[in-house]
């Protein structure tokens, strides 16, 4: 229901024209909105809310992420609260809530803290719970630590 509403809102603002768009949706909101039919390639960081109804390829870091039913994402995304109703190909990293609606189609790796999947959703890939599988998340930090240690040793020598 929510996705439909937002889709309709986007369509209505587009059709009404510049007058409504010119009302300043303040940039302080750190909002990203990619409308349906719009394609974006690249890296988005520091966003508060991201609503994707179009196609986004690349990296997305945002506190709240909504991939709406028309939306398609491929690449790496990370955020706190993520809702997927569209298609995702790649990696999802959710620190708080990940909600997968029944229209979702996901391929890839999902790292989550709290996950809810509605009957009908398609997920192909790997699920990792953030709390329980520390080995996954600590692999990268261990590597960094080892590098640091090696550097330190080199420094000592």
């Amino acid at each position: 229901m929510d996705e439909n509403n937002t889709d309709m809102d986007e369509n209505s603002t587009e059709s009404v024209g510049d007058e409504i768009q010119s009302t300043p949706i303040d940039n302080d909101a750190k909002a990203v909105n990619i409308g349906s039919g719009v394609r974006v390639d690249g890296r988005i960081e520091g966003a508060e809310t991201s609503d994707i109804s179009g196609t986004l390829t690349g990296t997305l870091k945002s506190s709240n992420i909504n991939i709406n039913s028309k939306g398609a994402f491929s690449g790496d995304m990370s955020g706190h609260e993520i809702t997927i109703s569209g298609s995702v190909d790649g990696e999802i990293n959710s620190e708080d809530y990940l909600i997968v609606n029944n229209s979702a189609n996901i391929k890839g790796v999902i790292e989550y803290t709290s996950l809810q999947v509605s009957y009908g959703a398609r997920i192909q890939g790997t699920l990792r719970h953030r709390g329980s599988v520390q080995s996954y998340s600590s692999v990268s930090t261990d590597e960094v630590k080892e590098d640091e240690i090696n550097e330190n040793h080199e420094g000592d020598q």
Partner: peptide, 11 residues
């Protein structure tokens, strides 16, 4: 899948 479950699996 209900909220709160702990899953480490390939789907």
């Amino acid at each position: 899948i209900q909220n709160g479950s702990i899953i480490n699996a390939d789907l």
